[in-house]
């Protein structure tokens, strides 16, 4: 009995240590086009699967894409202008279900790992948005300094 309790405490310690030493991946998600949102979600999944803490900072068009229900409106999804020639190919793959909707990919990443999605406070003010206007994967509003403080020791930092 006593031994079991000791083992349990040890396990808790290792889990706390793992948490403290977990490497970070920081993603600044600025773009609101479906190709980049998809790429960001898949990268977040990779980070979560590899036991990294993934912090995503949504700003400008990236944040607007997280307004409630926006991701479901397939006809309103746009491909980045510089890759417009590939738009029909990407849309076809999405409609055939070859590519999962990016929001679902991100939700799965949250399910399997430590993924935090933050909304940029400045963009929220700019567009008059409140946290309840956004999809529930977004956990909090954050300022740029808060995000930088969290991101400064990241192993991987991406601006998408």
């Amino acid at each position: 009995m006593a031994e079991a309790i000791v083992n349990e405490t040890k396990e808790q310690e290792t889990s706390t240590q793992r948490e403290a030493t977990r490497q970070k991946m920081s993603i600044i998600l600025y773009s609101g086009t479906v190709d980049k949102l998809t790429a960001a979600s898949i990268l977040a999944t990779g980070g979560a699967a590899m036991d990294m803490q993934v912090n995503i900072f949504l700003t400008f068009w990236g944040l607007l894409a997280f307004r409630k229900g926006a991701w479901k409106e397939l006809e309103r999804q746009k491909i980045s202008a510089e890759f417009a020639e590939y738009a029909p190919m990407m849309m076809e793959a999405m409609q055939q279900g070859k590519v999962k909707p990016w929001m679902e990919v991100l939700r799965e990443a949250k399910e399997i790992g430590d993924v935090n999605v933050y909304a940029c406070g400045m963009t929220m003010d700019l567009f008059g948005l409140k946290l309840e206007d956004l999809e529930d994967v977004v956990t909090a509003v954050q300022g740029v300094t808060g995000f930088v403080a969290e991101a400064k020791d990241s192993a991987i930092t991406l601006f998408i």
């Binding site: 898949i42 999944t45 990779g46 699967a49 070859k98 590519v99 999962k100 990919v105 799965e108 399910e111 399997i112």
Partner: peptide, 14 residues
């Protein structure tokens, strides 16, 4: 089969 990256890995993890 037919599921794009990272689909198969996610299914395995689950």
């Amino acid at each position: 089969r037919g599921s794009a990256c990272p689909g198969p890995l996610m299914e395995l993890i689950r």
